[in-house]
C-alpha cells in the first residue's frame, strides 16, 4: 500500500476562449490505507484530480509524490473504477480480468487472483459470462474485481456507484465497506453522493471551482448502515458545507 502527497497541483483548460482552472493549487496528503472521498458539484474538478493522480492527464504545475512501504516511489500501480463498468464486450468476465493482469501475473497466479477477486465481489460463478449477460450492478462489481485483482497500491474510484439504482448502490456500499475491512487499500473516491462518502470514507474533502475548501474526518465506526448513529448529522454538516452554508473546517 502506498500513501501520496499532492502539492500545488494546477491545471487550466481553455474552453471556447475561456480559461477555466480545473485544479487551482491542490495540496493534499492521503495516508497509506486511508480512504479519502472527494465531493463537490459537477465541474468542480474532482474527476480531473483523479485523472491526474492516475497519470491520465498531466498538470500545468505541481507534483504528486508516492510513498511506498520502502520509502518514496516514482510511481504506483493503480486500480481504477469508472462511473460505467467499461468492460470489454468481446471478452468474458475472466478475459477482462486477465487483461488487467497482463503485466502483473500470469498462469496459476493470475487464475488465483481472478478467482479471489470474483469471490470478493460475489461473482465467482460468473467468470465465463459475457458482459452483456450481466446486470448493471454485476458489471460494476466486475469492474471493481478487475481493479482489486491488480492488488493496486492505490485504488481510484470515479463515481463508481453513481449509475446504479438506489437499492443496488446501497448494497454495494455495504459490500465495498466489508471488502475494505478485510483488505485496507489506499483509496480516493470521487462522488457527488455525500451519504456514500460518509458511509465509506475516513475523510471527506470538498472541492469547489478547482480548490479544496474543506476536509472532514469521519470518526464513525464501521460498518455504517444508512441508519447508523451520527451518520445523518455528518451528511447534513458536509451537505451544508458543499452548499456553502457553513464556515470551512479545513
Amino acid at each position: 500500500m502506498y500513501g501520496l502527497t499532492i502539492t500545488g497541483l494546477r491545471r487550466r483548460f481553455d474552453i471556447s476562449g475561456r480559461s477555466i482552472d480545473a485544479l487551482d493549487g491542490i495540496d493534499l496528503t492521503i495516508a497509506s490505507g486511508e480512504l479519502l472521498a472527494v465531493v463537490g458539484h459537477s465541474g468542480c474538478g474532482k474527476t480531473t484530480l483523479l485523472h491526474h493522480v492516475a497519470g491520465l492527464q498531466r498538470p500545468d504545475a505541481g507534483t504528486i509524490a508516492f510513498e511506498g512501504p520502502d520509502g518514496p516511489a516514482a510511481s504506483a500501480r493503480f486500480g481504477m473504477v469508472f462511473q460505467e463498468p467499461r468492460l470489454m464486450p468481446w471478452k468474458t468476465v475472466r478475459g477482462n480480468l486477465e487483461l488487467a493482469l497482463k503485466h502483473i501475473a500470469s498462469g496459476a497466479e493470475a487464475e488465483s487472483r481472478i478467482a479471489d477477486a470474483l469471490e470478493t465481489v460475489g461473482l465467482a460463478a460468473f467468470a465465463d459470462a459475457w458482459p452483456h449477460q450481466l446486470s448493471g450492478g454485476m458489471a460494476q462489481r466486475v469492474s471493481l474485481a478487475r481493479a482489486l485483482c491488480r492488488e493496486p497500491d492505490i485504488l481510484l474510484l470515479d463515481e463508481p456507484f453513481g449509475a446504479l439504482d438506489a437499492l443496488t448502490r446501497s448494497r454495494i456500499h455495504g459490500e465495498f465497506a466489508a471488502i475494505r475491512l478485510r483488505r485496507p487499500l489506499t483509496t480516493i473516491l470521487v462522488t457527488h453522493d455525500i451519504a456514500e462518502a460518509v458511509r465509506l470514507a475516513d475523510r471527506v474533502a470538498i472541492m469547489q471551482a478547482g480548490r479544496l475548501t474543506a476536509v472532514f474526518d469521519i470518526d464513525l465506526p464501521h460498518p455504517r448502515p444508512l441508519a447508523a448513529p451520527g451518520l445523518a448529522e455528518e451528511v447534513a454538516t458536509i451537505t451544508a458545507a458543499v452548499l456553502g452554508d457553513t464556515i470551512s473546517q479545513a
Binding site: L56, F82, M88, K102, R150
Partner: peptide, 20 residues
C-alpha cells in the same frame, strides 16, 4: 473510454491495438 481504460491497465500501444 475503453482506450482510456487500457491506459489505466498499463497496456502498450500494441496491446491496445490488439485488445481494444
Amino acid at each position: 473510454k475503453l482506450i482510456e481504460l487500457a491506459r489505466t491497465l498499463d497496456l502498450t500501444r500494441r496491446e491496445t491495438a490488439l485488445h481494444v
